[in-house]
Design a protein around this nucleic acid. Sequence first.
DNA 1: TCTGGGGTCCTAGTGCCC
DNA 2: TCTGGGGCACTAGGACCC
Length: 450
Amino acid sequence: MDAFFASAEQASKPSLRGKAVVVGGLGPRGVVATASYEARVFGVHSAMPMAQARRLAPNAAYLVPRFGFYRAISEQVMGLLRDLSPLVEPLSLDEAFVDLEAGGAAWDEESARLAGAKLRADIRAVTGLTGSVGLAASKMLAKIASEQAKPDGLVVIEPGTERALIGPMSVRILPGVGPATGDHLRRAGIHTVEEIVEAGEDELVRLLGKAHGHGLYAMAMAYDERSVVAERETKSVSVEDTYDVDIHDRMRVGFEVQRLADRCVRRLRGAGLSGRTIVLKVRRYDFSTLTRSETLRGPTDDPAVVREAAARLLESVDTTGGVRLLGVGVSGLADYTQEDLFAQAAGERVELGEEVAEEAVAEEGPVVAERRWASGHDVRHAEFGHGWVQGSGLGRVTVRFETPDSEPGRVRTFSVDDPALAVAEPLPLVRVECGAAGLRPDPGSHSHRP
DNA sequence: TCTGGGGTCCTAGTGCCC
DNA sequence: TCTGGGGCACTAGGACCC
């Protein structure tokens, strides 16, 4: 999907179409999750600190992510992919590999092209959004093709042309080459993919180590035999929070670790898992990050056990100077065991039950009056109907009243505790027929978009 | 400029067992 | 009895991805 979060917001909010939109954390330490193509013109991009984005594009719309909303759209798209093949490997909410041959959806270049074109049309009809398709003989090349296809396109890499195509490209296009490896290679005088090939496999192994060296050399030769894997097992579950202001108080650090341990266990249980290794993560005031872990004798999903382990691990960490991030994770995962179920029956479930509401809210925005009106979130007003929060502060909340298929709407300001105003569910981007389950498109409804 | 959150994989050191 | 080495589990850190 193209600039997924930002595009979804633009489709949902007519007044933002054609405008610079930035989705990400709005706190003092937030970073950009997605910038619309209009915002990218100003140099705004993913992972950039929000403060920097605001300097570059002061007039852009800044919104907090609505993962529930994006997940619903993502499920529609993944459904379309599974219609093509049973072998669908999601990489994230907005990207997936599909093995077209395994599904019989394509057997040669022409049939693949047709399947790709139809998929793009279906995505547009069902979600109202644009997606790009890359077609190639391997995952690495399909990914490169899809990057080239963005936005709103389709690119095929024909067999036999791979080496010539990727040779002149930067090493950074290869999977596994990030800033650190990129720098490492650059210092060795290697800038392009073909320079990796020229350097030779032995040199790559010498520079980067065995696994990385062999892997990268193969990728540079356009050799990638990784198969599309539909079901990947989860290996770890973790939660972490970055605090707006560094925490110095040791008691408060301990309290936050306990809360994170509880949240982590709720995730774990939600996935029907338990785990043996408890990991504590601490990022200090100077951004140095350290982890401490402890492996138990058997897997657990007991909040008290995870809390105690996390507290023990915290004892070995010096937090003077302050911490900016804390995290708790569990790895060495297993399915529930009988012992767990018997040993830990009622008590803890009640204990955790009380906090379920808090967890649900954490997904979509806190309950506290001011923060309840998170920028970009949907609301309904008894008199003015459906809208979204454009901003809030100083006891006021500003709402723009519009829906995905309306004209750009009017803005009105209310008191944050106005009883006529309530949080609302996002509206579907494409109108559905009455009684339909929600996936059937209204023919031609995407033409509502300007 | 000042760096999120949730993951995966790899490497290297250490200790233990055979 | 001492030494060496392979294999494995555990721990910590780093890089990378979206």
